[in-house]
């Protein structure tokens, strides 16, 4: 069993608890144990905090990292926004002495110190990583293949970009997420401009909601164009933007899509035999029932 400190973030536990529940259960079936990271906070939101004062962003993220350093466990998480904060701040502070000293000066006030002794991983990359899990192991864990469903993959931005500082390779047309999706028995579909942003990041969702929704809408048009039955992603914030965004788009623009949006962990949970109730899919704004009837 590979053990990790499970960094929850905000939206997964507090809006889509199915993401949290499915992450814990699905990962265990492929040999990954998620331990609670007690006392963790918001990552903090890279768009909001980063825009206000990067130094606070560094310090707040560092505090979360120190909690895991004290557990002597690497962190895993299920949100691209959290990945941006936790992975990137870890990376920056490991490599930038000046910033690390500044952060540690502040952390000293609460008897903490950033040491740089752990690594940070997105659960999806652990799933894909042959050394930890790998696509085959995911495939082997499937009991209820989600056959017949066309799934539009949404990679999101902050997991893989900026490419140079990350380790995921190509960000123009990556295919690794498609492999993970195909492992569940469903068909990943290609659609126009799949790497485009969901529109929510950088504080834009709060600052100018119709602007953010217009970006989302463009993606939804492209997804509908290829007849996708659902969208899957690895970021609850993107999920929120696509899921609740569809309701807001209907209200503000009048466009109706009804395309269910599921976190990859939720999809994996279904494929491993979890029921829709186990995943609290009823909390999704877009009704998942037609999709569930198609695949289950």
């Amino acid at each position: 069993m590979h053990e990790y400190a499970f960094f929850l973030g905000c939206i997964a536990p507090n809006r889509y608890p199915g993401c949290e529940a499915s992450a814990i259960k699905t990962s265990e079936k492929v040999g990954i144990k998620l331990l609670p990271l007690k006392g963790a906070s918001c990552c903090p939101a890279p768009g909001a905090f980063g825009s206000i004062d990067l130094n606070v962003w560094y310090a707040m993220a560092a505090r979360n990292l120190v909690l895991a350093e004290e557990m002597k466990k690497d962190i895993t998480l299920i949100c691209n926004g959290c990945y941006k904060s936790i992975w990137e701040v870890n990376h920056i502070l490991k490599h930038n002495d000046e910033l690390r000293d500044n952060v540690n000066e502040v952390l000293a006030e609460i008897d903490m110190q950033f040491k740089g002794s752990i690594d940070v991983w997105h659960l999806a990359e652990l799933y894909y990583d042959e050394k930890i899990c790998g696509v085959q192991k995911i495939k082997d864990s499937v009991t209820t293949p989600l056959t017949g469903a066309k799934i539009a993959p949404h990679y999101g931005c902050h997991l893989m970009k900026p490419q140079k500082e990350r380790h995921f390779g190509d960000t123009e047309n990556p295919m690794w997420f498609e492999e993970l999706i195909a492992a569940l028995g469903c068909e990943p579909v290609q659609y126009r401009n799949k790497m485009q942003c969901c529109g929510a990041g950088g504080g834009v969702r709060g600052y100018d909601i119709v602007h953010a929704l217009d970006i989302t809408n463009e993606k939804l048009i492209n997804v509908r164009e290829v007849g996708a039955d659902a969208i899957t992603e690895v970021c609850p914030f993107c999920q929120l933007q696509f899921d609740r965004g569809q309701i807001e788009i209907k209200e503000k623009f009048g466009d109706v899509y009804n395309i269910p949006v599921l976190h990859y962990n939720e999809l994996l949970g279904l494929a491993q035999g979890m029921s829709p109730q186990d995943l609290a899919l009823d909390l999704h704004a877009i009704d998942c029932t037609p999709f569930l009837q198609k695949v289950l």
Binding site: P46, C157, K161, A200, G201, G202, V204, Y207, D208, I215
Partner: peptide, 9 residues
């Protein structure tokens, strides 16, 4: 200035 979604494209 506040319309950047920080997508890093």
């Amino acid at each position: 200035l506040w319309l950047c979604t920080t997508c890093y494209s």
